[in-house]
Design a protein around this nucleic acid. Structure first.
Lengths: 225, 225
DNA sequence: CTGAAAGCGCTAACAG
DNA sequence: CTGTTAGCGCTTTCAG
């Protein structure tokens, strides 16, 4: 079903059909009704692909989440899906690859001319971040930060969180302290650790056991709903 | 960056550029190299949107998962992402809406001319399932079954599972039995229940307490990674 | 408000 | 193997 076919059926021009499905386009409600009626009969839906080609906007946002094992991410994903749908955007998900080889992912992603990229649980090589910038594709990091100021990022206040944990433990009367790191060189981990150390330092505590955990646990097997 | 620009830069026809990026196309390796070189310099990537418009294949698979709260689904999603990427397909995710209003979702989904639809944690209204069929879009249900034979589905053997649980409990010497249902009218729940009842019946047990749980638990709040 | 016409970037015959 | 040509389905000037 194409707009031309609908136009023919409705006895109007193809442009009229296009205008019918373009919010705010200049069209009389009479013509509009005719088109809508024909569209319904023929089961017509505008072709988003063709539209994208000419408007240069795909209304697709790429979301890159290397893994979903961390329970936090599915929650985020669901929320993201809801929010994007509300704005009539669509979510192209890239997941299930190791953190290392994200470059080929971007190659794919660029080909779809996505309107924006949300990076969670992965980072962008500086080369690619530059390419996105020069291509005019907005990139936002989620739960990550970076020094490059071209890239926006959304995170929680990890340092504050670490500090509060420290206060909490001290207030609980604890006497010996430790810290189990996540991915050691992630900004998330650095910030939490810093806050924790600072918090304890405020109480004159400097002796803190340290271990690296990498957020690891035995790999989950597929489970049944 | 368009193929024409690359063609000009490389001193070949635009078709040559197209052929360079079409696996199996008839092109000399000399021309190919020239094109590849120019493409690299200019940072060219084929426009998947334009390609889709003419080939009528988007290489996009829509995955519909109403919610991701059940830990099983993120696992599936990750696996799906991996598998699709390996075949050079892309995953358009629809999530974060209530089970009821999935019809508008399909409206969106149809506009993108997806090559196929995977439905998990949601069902398709018969009307839409028909429309997909007539549009030639393959649909597969995941973790759901249906009577309509036009629709394929992938599930685990729930009946067998229910039966085995029964055997297990009996073998453990238990004497009184109960069953907590999930969503009561889902095929998944029906099959498990049936298997469980059958299994127990095999041992002459017919008295089984019954309660509906709806897989519920207090709604999870956003958690930090 | 409406239609005609030009093209978005690409693939797919078609000749050479 | 290569270039030329004709569209894919749509939006967007441009006249009327």
């Amino acid at each position: 079903m194409t707009s031309s076919q609908v136009a023919e059926h409705a006895g109007v021009s193809q442009s009229a059909v296009s205008r019918t499905f373009t919010p705010g386009a200049s069209i009389s409600s009479k013509t509009r009704q005719k088109v809508l009626a024909s569209a319904k009969v023929l089961g017509y839906r505008p072709n988003a692909i063709a539209r994208s080609l000419i408007t240069n906007r795909s209304r697709i946002i790429a979301v890159v989440m290397a893994y979903l094992e961390n329970l936090f991410y599915p929650d985020v994903l669901e929320e993201l899906g809801r929010a994007l749908a509300a704005e009539n955007y669509h979510l192209l998900l890239f997941t299930g690859f190791m953190d290392r080889d994200s470059d080929p992912v971007f190659d794919q992603l660029m080909q779809y001319r996505v309107d924006g990229i949300i990076l969670a649980s992965t980072s962008l090589s500086s080369e690619l971040s530059e390419e996105c910038a020069s291509a005019g594709i907005p990139v936002v990091l989620f739960n990550r930060t970076t020094e490059r100021d071209a890239v926006s990022s959304v995170t929680t206040r990890n340092r504050e969180g670490g500090k509060r944990i420290a206060e909490f433990l001290v207030a609980g009367g604890h006497k010996s302290f430790g810290y189990i790191a996540g991915l050691e060189n992630s900004s998330t981990n650095r910030d939490r650790h810093q806050g924790y150390v600072e918090g304890l330092a405020g109480h004159g505590i400097t002796e803190i056991a340290y271990e690296i955990g990498n957020y690891s646990r035995p790999k989950r097997k597929l489970r049944r709903a």
